[in-house]
């Protein structure tokens, strides 16, 4: 469960988050929508501990990451829009490194490696260096590894950028399975059709404030039958447009 209470973040004069409050329940896939610079990535970075909030609280399973960082990091999986991977490790070595990092027993790493590499089409690339992989294969590798320690909370920034339809479907199925098994997912995307397709609830953020919140159907009803795209454009219109 993710609980965000009156979260504020400022960078000098810039207010990236302005009193944001939100709760995401277990088993829920929550989609964060908003124009560039609206505060989506900042929210995720505060939840992961990469950025410290100016005020307010961000709780993961009832605990603030600032209070018990290592325990929380064991419960979360974070996939940034351009993930960092060790270029000079092979695909298999990277997977094993990740498993050791979370103290996963060797037999389970081997078992998961076989299963995940088959599922993500990485078997034929298992001996390649990470630097030799295409963008799509790198994304598949990061998904294959991030789920290895079975994180209950997934925080994903722009998961579908530059991916082919096969990989998009693969990831959508993976996310749905994760929420069905009781996991919580907070993801950001600019692809509104995907948000409508997979999200249990959607939040639209603009200039650090939550301007709309609900299931896609609720938002549709509440705003006079507007499509998600029309609603998004209406609520996040730049000044003077």
């Amino acid at each position: 469960m993710i609980e965000i209470q009156n979260l504020c973040k400022t960078y000098g004069a810039l207010r990236a988050l302005d009193n944001l409050s939100l709760t995401i329940r277990p088993g829920e896939l929550f989609c964060f929508l908003g124009p560039n610079g609206a505060g989506k990535t900042t929210t995720i970075k505060i939840l992961t501990g990469l950025v410290r909030a100016t005020s307010g609280r961000a709780l993961v399973n009832g605990t603030d990451i600032q209070h018990d960082p290592i325990a929380i990091k064991r419960q979360i999986g974070y996939i940034p829009d351009t993930p960092y991977l060790y270029e000079r490790l092979t695909v298999t070595e990277f997977f094993r490194f990740y498993g050791e990092l979370f103290d996963i027993p060797e037999p389970r790493i081997a078992e998961e490696l076989e299963r995940n590499f088959t599922r993500f089409g990485l078997l034929e690339h298992r001996g390649a260096l990470v630097k030799e992989l295409s963008h799509g294969l790198r994304q598949r590798l990061i998904y294959a590894t991030t789920f290895l320690h079975n994180p209950r909370i997934m925080l994903i920034d722009e998961p579908f950028v530059g991916l082919d339809p096969y990989t998009i479907r693969l990831i959508k199925d993976l996310l749905r399975t994760h929420t069905r098994e009781g996991g919580t997912i907070l993801l950001t995307t600019h692809i509104l059709a995907i948000a409508e397709d997979i999200a249990d609830r959607v939040g639209i953020i603009h200039r650090g404030r939550l301007v709309a919140l609900g299931t896609p159907e609720e938002l549709h009803r509440k705003h006079g039958g507007d499509s998600l795209e029309d609603l998004f454009l209406k609520l996040t219109r730049p000044d003077g447009a």
Partner: peptide, 13 residues
């Protein structure tokens, strides 16, 4: 372990 793997990767490169 990662450093060991990286050294192996560097040798390969």
């Amino acid at each position: 372990t990662k450093t060991r793997f990286q050294l192996r990767g560097t040798r390969r490169v």
